[in-house]
Nucleic acid binder design. Sequence first.
DNA 1: TAACAAACGTTATATTATAACACTATGATA
DNA 2: TATCATAGTGTTATAATATAACGTTTGTTA
Lengths: 132, 132
Amino acid sequence: MPQTQILSRNQKIVLDIIEKAKGPLKAYSILFNVQKKGINAPQQIYRALDKLIEMGKIHKIESKNAFVACRSSDCEISKATAFSICESCEMVDEISDAKLSKYLSGFNYRKGMKFKRFNLEFFGICKKCKKD
Amino acid sequence: MPQTQILSRNQKIVLDIIEKAKGPLKAYSILFNVQKKGINAPQQIYRALDKLIEMGKIHKIESKNAFVACRSSDCEISKATAFSICESCEMVDEISDAKLSKYLSGFNYRKGMKFKRFNLEFFGICKKCKKD
DNA sequence: TAACAAACGTTATATTATAACACTATGATA
DNA sequence: TATCATAGTGTTATAATATAACGTTTGTTA
Ligand SMILES: [Zn+2]
Ligand SMILES: [Zn+2]
Ligand SMILES: [Zn+2]
Ligand SMILES: [Zn+2]
């Protein structure tokens, strides 16, 4: 298992644009932004996104169908993700909190199964939006 | 604020089919199943779904774009939802755990905002699927 | 009854995501 | 070297999910 993943051309292009973005990006907005680089079809975007998610380089914000770069080192390959989402400006922050992560990773629902993975999305109004 | 919400005709039809389902239902599968009752267009389904979600009668499973009936009395108007999802058979269970709910409702991210709502999705393989 | 809000029905369209197929590059292996 | 497998690419087409916009109907309330 290689420490540093080698990215393909398209994967690099897609990761690059997501990393540079200030907020979550939608697949088709990525597509429109990379057409000058010779990527023409949704498939090319979705394939890159899938691999980047597998590698833990990006995450999908399920409630928004959008993608953000991983800013956290302790979210090992996307097995434990948590986000803070502003319902006004759409800002998304990855939450990196060891206690929270530990609490949820260890959570066992009595009548249920053993969990392999979780995704948590918090919603509210961010400080910046509250000032308005 | 009325204790018992009065549902419209379409809302009743949609809620009824979701409540009777064994697993999460997709909007278009709901649509196909109610066409005999005179509902013909996606809009009618989505409008009912939106209202039912507002009322806390159903929840959306974001990672699946599907809908389940609320089985929990203490998830007050969908402000605090948690689910257990089998990655093999697609089964979804609403998690009703007071400690978990309290812990997350009280969670405050130091550099962030005050949260009004959260949604948590756990993934794994359910007991039934593990036997195979 | 007049006014308003909520729900309804309908047509059209936007947005998000996948299927399918042929092709290319790479590296392992026999 | 020939061959095989794996991963990535490019392309066309289509499926699946969701919303816009408009006018009508229904139910509540003043
Ligand atoms: Zn991360
Ligand atoms: Zn904001
Ligand atoms: Zn519930
Ligand atoms: Zn299962």
